[in-house]
Amino acid sequence: MHKNKTRAVIEVKNLSFAYDKDLILEDINLMIFEKDFMVFIGPNGGGKSTLVKLMLGINPLQKGSITILDKSIRKSISQIGYVPQNTNINLNFPIKAIEVVMMGKSSLRTSLFGYKKEEVHHAMELLEKVGMQEFANSKIGSLSGGQRQRVMIARALCADPKILLLDEPTSSIDTDGQKQIYELLKELNKEITIIVVSHDISVLLEYASKVAHINKKLSFHDISSIKNIETKSDHICEVELLEMLGKCKC
C-alpha cells in the first residue's frame, strides 16, 4: 500500500452477512484510506451492493464490525455521500433536479414548506460542480441517464461528505457519459475518498488506486499486475479479464 501514512477512513473487520440463511458475505476484512479511489468488482449477485448497504447502515450488522472515521456507522453516516445503484426510480415523479440535490443530508433538518436562499445557492454550486447548472429546473425524469447520475452525485455531495460511495454509477450510461462521470470523480478525489462499485475494467486501469474483488469473500488486487495482464495479452476481452481477476489470488 503506497499511501500507508494516511489514516483509515473505513475499517471493516471479520464481517459476515446473510439475508435469510444464505451467507452473502463471509469474513470480509478491508481498510480504505484517505483519498483512496477504491473500486469493488465482482460478479452480479456477488454481494457488492450488500457490502455498500452495510457500510451505510441500511443493512444491519450481523457479525463483525465496520468503523467509519474511527466511529460507529451511526455516528459518522453524515460523512458519507451515497449514490445508489438504481437511480432510474420514480421517473414520472414531478421533481426538479435542484430539488433532488437539496434532498442531500444537510438541508433536510429544516423541513418547512419552501427552500431557503442559501440552500438554493449551495445546490446551484453543486450542480455547477457536476456540470449540470443549466438543468437545475428540469424535471428529473426528462434528463438522460448520465445527467441524472450527475444530479445524484451533487445530491450526495450536499452534506460535504469526506467519503463518496457510488454503486455502479455508470451501468446505464453510454461510453462518453461514463468517461465524463469518471473524470468528475477523479476531480473530486483530490479532496475526498471515492469508493465505486463498477464493472468497467477501463476504470480500474485509469482511475482506481485499489481494486477489491467481491464474491462472497473479498480479495485485493494490485493494480500494476492487472496492467501487466492487459499489456501481455493485447486483445483480452473485459469478461475474460474479470474472470481472471476472480480466480487469481494476486
Partner: peptide, 24 residues
C-alpha cells in the same frame, strides 16, 4: 401536515431509502 412536513414527505415519496439515510 403538508405545510409542516412537505420536504420530509417529498423525500420519502421520491426516494425512501435515501430519505432514511438522511435521518428521516
Amino acid at each position: 401536515v403538508i405545510t409542516f412536513w412537505y420536504r420530509n414527505i417529498l423525500a420519502v415519496s421520491y426516494d425512501s431509502e435515501y430519505a432514511a439515510l438522511s435521518g428521516i
